[in-house]
Design a protein around this nucleic acid. Structure first.
Lengths: 197, 197
DNA sequence: TACATTTGCTTAACGCTGTTAAATAGTTTA
DNA sequence: TAAACTATTTAACAGCGTTAAGCAAATGTA
């Protein structure tokens, strides 16, 4: 009778289990180790079951990308809220990106990896847009005469150097050591100081 | 009789054909389309033949990485040679990186892609080291009191922002449009101007 | 209660992947 | 001419993403 909701509930649970299992496999053995059959093994089903919850493997990756952007958005919001001055807010936000990349490396790789799929959709992800908006707003607050074009340019400059530093550190299997964190802070201050040029 | 050399020659030719075929496939349909059988088709052999020239697929990727670093090294050398002043040399070198990324996108993806294989070997590649040395020397010439530590830090800062900007542009399927080239030049000048801070 | 239908799940299969071993054809050597 | 060696292919294995068919258990209906 009233088991409609119960069924719905365990279905959502299974869907969540699939995502959890996928992430667990990737954390243990990297993206190249992820397969539908391994996910199925982990949730104690067989592979075809997964296709009742996701259209295909890319669908799972897309959902994980979304989860990643959700988590990052939370961190960005907290970072901004923890500071009052725009310059400190901006620094805190980029440090949040940095920390996210090394604490959630696999999600970061998926979200910003070069060859990873789901490129088109990413742009449209509301969580990603929300994070970008927070950053743009903070940059705007720092400018004496902000124009959309200048804000965008500064945003790209910031994002490039952070993403670049992170990439190099991830490539070198580093965990974001002190020297590079130093470089990051230097670069952030450099851009902030010349933000009105 | 004297066909030993001829055989050697056509063997080297086949090896080269394998690499050419691989690169051609990747240029046409992307990295995910590359397979041993497709390479074999293109050179009009069957797949197992390839294993007499390369240990495995990763061996091909490694060799392509090497070729990429060789080409880039040439560009870097030309860029430096075309200028006399260190600051202009440095700008020209980074522009060479930028142009390489968009003219040889597939090789660039292989050389610096996040999830691509051959990570450990890359650091040891002599061509990659040679390019890095040229850049470090040029940075050193720009400094009034260069120390290894500071040179390294500036190198990382440069490389991060260039690699970051390139990544974003490649992700957005862009071809390195004018605005981002503008950002790149701005950033380079910014770092050069504060190189002694 | 008996039959029909739907649901949940598995098995089997297709075409693809990288890779290896066995078989075959072709050329060289004795 | 017979034996040895070389070049190349065919066949196969295990794994991949994905789909279709089958089965078994639960549900709805008479």
């Amino acid at each position: 009778m009233g088991s409609k909701e119960r069924i719905q509930r365990i279905k959502e649970e299974t869907r969540s289990n699939i995502l959890d299992a996928a992430l667990q496999i990737v954390r243990e053995d990297g993206w190249q180790a992820l397969s539908m059959r391994k996910i199925a093994d982990k949730i104690e089903y067989t592979a075809p079951i997964i296709y009742e919850y996701f259209a295909n493997k890319e669908g799972i990756l897309f959902e994980l990308t979304r989860i990643g952007h959700q988590l990052l958005l939370q961190d960005v919001r907290s970072a901004k809220a923890a500071q009052t001055e725009p310059d400190l807010q901006l620094e805190a936000i980029w440090m949040a990106y940095w920390n996210f990349a090394f604490s959630q490396t696999q999600l970061y790789q998926l979200m910003y990896g070069v060859d990873m799929v789901c490129c088109e959709q990413k742009k449209a992800l509301p969580e990603a847009i929300a994070s970008a908006k927070i950053i743009n707003d903070t940059i705007s607050e720092l400018m004496v005469k902000p124009t959309p074009d200048m804000i965008c340019r500064k945003y790209y400059t910031f994002w490039s150097i952070i993403h670049g530093l992170i990439s190099i550190n991830l490539l070198n299997k580093g965990t974001g050591d002190e020297m590079n964190q130093h470089i990051l802070k230097d670069a952030i201050h450099g851009i902030i100081n010349t933000i009105n040029d």
